[in-house]
């Protein structure tokens, strides 16, 4: 089955961890992830500047490793990300900000990517909405 996964919660929220474990289970069971889409406070799950205490699971780092290893399409909504200070090199340069905190393979793009993923997938599963 093809899944699109939307994440609306930051790395420190339980919903982000649940989304990550769900995504890992999807692949472990032999299913496909069409795209991961990070929106609202979910853009913080993609930030490279998140630092967890040593005795806690570093969910932001685990997201990055997972996406890299599984070579997933992981899109962060650009409007939501800019508003919350999650910038790649290009946007940091464009707006004259001192640092970028969105490394590859994360991609900044628009909401059309969410709709496209929902259309392409058999299931859209959201984490962290209200």
């Amino acid at each position: 089955m093809k899944f699109a996964i939307a994440v609306f919660a930051p790395a420190h929220a339980p919903a982000s961890r649940r989304a990550l474990r769900f995504a890992q289970a999807v692949l472990a069971e032999g299913h496909e992830i069409v795209r991961l889409f990070f929106y609202q406070d979910g853009v913080h799950s993609a930030s490279a500047n998140v630092v967890f205490p040593q005795d806690e699971s570093d969910i932001a780092a685990q997201w990055h490793t997972f996406i890299q290893q599984a070579q997933l399409d992981a899109v962060v909504c650009i409007a939501a990300a800019l508003r919350r200070g999650v910038l790649d090199e290009q946007e940091a340069g464009r707006y004259g900000r001192p640092a970028a905190n969105l490394p590859e393979p994360w991609v900044l793009s628009g909401l059309g990517q969410l709709h496209e993923a929902a259309q392409a997938a058999d299931r859209l599963v959201s984490f962290g909405g209200v």
Partner: peptide, 19 residues
């Protein structure tokens, strides 16, 4: 906060695609 606007933006983006 931005949640209301961001919910609306999903609808407007989908509408623009004719969904």
């Amino acid at each position: 906060g931005p949640a209301a606007r961001e919910a609306l933006d999903i609808a407007l983006a989908g509408g623009a695609f004719g969904l």
